[in-house]
Amino acid sequence: MSLLKDFTKGLWKENPVLVLVLGTCPTLAVTSSATNGLGMGLATTFVLVCSNVVISIIAGIVPKKIRIPVYIVVIATFVTIIDLLMKAYSPPELYNALGIFISLIVVNCIVLGRAEAFASKNNPVRSFLDGLGMGLGFTLTLTMTGIIREFLSTGSMFEVKVITGWTVDFLLPSSAPGAFIIVGVLLAGMNYLNLRRAVKQGKVYVPPQGMDCRHCHICDFGDKTDGRN
C-alpha cells in the first residue's frame, strides 16, 4: 500500500510542478508544443528514476560533507547518457527543439530535490517508484501545458490541426509570458480543487509554500483556507 503511494503521490498530491512548484524553468521554456513537453518530461523521468535508484544504493557510504557534489555527478552522468541516446535515436526535430534544455536537466530542482529528500533516505525499490511517479507527474503537467499552449496558439494538437480554419498563429500562448499565464491558471486550478476537497472533508487546506492567499484579496478563496489572511 505504501509502495503504491510512493508512486502515485507524484502524479497529484505532490505533483512536482503544480504542488511542489519545482522545475518551472523547463515547464515554461520547452512546452511550446505538446510533443516538446512530452519529450522533455520523458527525458527527465529517465534521469529521475536512474539517479534515484543509484543514489539510494550509494547513500549509505557517501560522506555527509560531500553528498551534494556526489549526487550532482551521478545526475550529470545520467543527463549526458540521455543526451547521447536522444541524439542517436530520437527524431532530429525533437532533439533540436529541446536543445540546451536536455543538458539543463542537471540543474532541475526536482532531480536533486528527490535525491536529497527521498532517495538518500529510502531503499532502491521505493526510490525507483518515487522517481517514476514524480517523473510521470512532471511529464503529465508538461504535456498538458504543451497541449494547451499549442492549441491556443495554432489550433493544433501534437502538430495535427484540429481546427482547420485556424491559419494565423496567436502568439501569446506560445511565448514565455503566455506560458507564465497558463501555468499560473493551472496552479490556481490545482489549488482550487484541493481546497474544495479539503473543505468537503472538513480539513484545513494548506496551500504550497508562498502560494497562499495572504497577499491577495481579489477573491474570497483565501477566507476558506485557514484564516491566515
Partner: peptide
C-alpha cells in the same frame, strides 16, 4: 520566434485531422 520567424523558415506540411 515561434509563429513569426518560423513562418519564414519552416517548410511544414500542415496535417489536419481530416
Amino acid at each position: 520566434t515561434p509563429g513569426l520567424g518560423t513562418v519564414v523558415c519552416d517548410r511544414k506540411e500542415v496535417k489536419t485531422i481530416f
